[in-house]
Amino acid sequence: MAVALLIGFLMLLTLGEGNEDVLRSLEAGQYDERSIDTAKRALLQNSVGISKLADAFASQIGTQQKPASSSSYPFFPPIQISKDKNYVNSCLGYTSTGKRENERREFVKTANRDYIFVLDTSGSILGSEFTLAKEAIASLTEAFCPNTFGSEITNGGTKQVAMVVFGTRVTKVMSFEDSLKGLRAVQEKIMAVKHRREGATSTATALNYVREAILGQGSSRINDPKVSTDVIIITDGRCNVDCKDLAKEADAIRAMGQGVNVFAVGVAAARECELDIISGKVPKSSFGLNGMKYFKDLAESVVEKARSMPNKCV
């Protein structure tokens, strides 16, 4: 399933000798697996590419950045075959009633924010890559605004962080209440998670768990208009259990409130179409990386950007 990376940014990169035809194909709107894969490698193995991707990631999820012009975003844009009513069927083998074709919405950003990280722990992700993912998430919990952990609503803003991992099973790593103990406790919990390498990838079940057990309970501030909630799924994009419910579950999370944003970070063999299904094809909400190493590089770039900001966060 071919989904183009943003062509404007690809123009800034050198794809390498012998790949001029690939660039011309992308510019002409001719997308195939070879051109997409080549472009992704050129983009995401390039330090400039990681920096640009970090800008996009921080701008969309953070509170202090204004989004750059669209030509600065190396993300997976809305799918080129969005008029195809069988798009979801062609990706995952089922027909969806979800809003897969024309959904457009603005990201909601407030001073008070809740973050939920949803990390794939299936067998297709190596132990070393899982460690890199944990390190990246731990860094982002510090870099994302606001700086203060708390459940009260303030003008300066407070944040809460929750985390779940999923493979065959879905397990809560940290609740919003746990994060109120502060940054150090949050990062220690993240780094203590063991990689299970389970055989299945139950992404739809994980989203259902987030909706019912995280957003629907405890100190979730889902219904407060002064709070925005970011759900960030990190996966290799290969759902293989209850995938018929993936679009429905992702849509159900977004339907919980206008302040809910769903992001998909795909690594390695992630299917771009599956990331689009998770994110609802909302522009600038899907990010593709060739491996967890690049996710960690992205997180480190976001941290560097945060340190340069007046509030030391993004």
Score class of each variant (00 low, 15 high):
residue 3 V to I: 11
residue 3 V to H: 12
residue 6 L to M: 10
residue 11 M to K: 14
residue 14 T to P: 10
residue 14 T to K: 15
residue 15 L to F: 11
residue 16 G to L: 05
residue 19 N to I: 00
residue 21 D to M: 04
residue 22 V to H: 12
residue 28 A to K: 09
residue 31 Y to C: 07
residue 33 E to Y: 10
residue 38 T to D: 08
residue 44 L to Q: 14
residue 46 N to G: 07
residue 49 G to E: 09
residue 52 K to Y: 13
residue 55 D to Q: 09
residue 61 I to G: 03
residue 62 G to K: 00
residue 63 T to S: 15
residue 65 Q to L: 15
residue 66 K to A: 14
residue 70 S to M: 09
residue 70 S to F: 06
residue 70 S to T: 13
residue 71 S to I: 14
residue 73 Y to N: 01
residue 81 I to V: 07
residue 81 I to A: 15
residue 82 S to Q: 14
residue 86 N to A: 13
residue 86 N to W: 03
residue 87 Y to R: 15
residue 89 N to D: 13
residue 92 L to H: 01
residue 93 G to F: 07
residue 94 Y to P: 03
residue 94 Y to L: 00
residue 98 G to F: 01
residue 106 E to V: 06
residue 107 F to G: 09
residue 107 F to L: 14
residue 107 F to V: 12
residue 109 K to Y: 09
residue 109 K to E: 06
residue 110 T to A: 08
residue 111 A to I: 11
residue 112 N to Y: 07
residue 112 N to V: 10
residue 115 Y to L: 10
residue 123 G to C: 05
residue 128 S to H: 11
residue 128 S to P: 02
residue 129 E to C: 01
residue 133 A to D: 08
residue 136 A to N: 09
residue 139 S to N: 11
residue 143 A to V: 04
residue 144 F to K: 03
residue 145 C to N: 01
residue 149 F to T: 03
residue 154 T to Q: 02
residue 155 N to F: 05
residue 157 G to P: 04
residue 157 G to Y: 08
residue 159 K to G: 05
residue 161 V to S: 04
residue 164 V to K: 04
residue 166 F to D: 02
residue 171 T to E: 13
residue 173 V to Q: 05
residue 177 E to W: 04
residue 177 E to N: 07
residue 178 D to N: 11
residue 181 K to E: 15
residue 181 K to A: 15
residue 185 A to H: 08
residue 186 V to T: 15
residue 188 E to H: 05
residue 190 I to E: 02
residue 190 I to Y: 04
residue 191 M to C: 02
residue 192 A to V: 07
residue 193 V to W: 08
residue 197 R to P: 02
residue 204 A to P: 02
residue 204 A to W: 03
residue 208 N to V: 04
residue 210 V to T: 05
residue 210 V to I: 10
residue 213 A to G: 00
residue 221 R to D: 06
residue 227 V to G: 05
residue 229 T to I: 07
residue 233 I to E: 00
residue 246 L to Q: 02
residue 250 A to M: 03
residue 252 A to D: 03
residue 254 R to S: 07
residue 254 R to W: 02
residue 255 A to P: 00
residue 257 G to H: 09
residue 263 F to Y: 15
residue 266 G to R: 08
residue 266 G to D: 06
residue 270 A to G: 06
residue 271 R to P: 00
residue 271 R to I: 12
residue 273 C to N: 07
residue 275 L to W: 06
residue 275 L to P: 08
residue 277 I to T: 11
residue 281 K to C: 09
residue 282 V to K: 08
residue 284 K to C: 00
residue 289 L to D: 05
residue 290 N to G: 11
residue 292 M to L: 12
residue 294 Y to G: 00
residue 295 F to S: 04
residue 302 V to D: 09
residue 305 K to H: 01
residue 306 A to H: 04
residue 310 P to E: 12
residue 310 P to M: 13
residue 311 N to M: 13
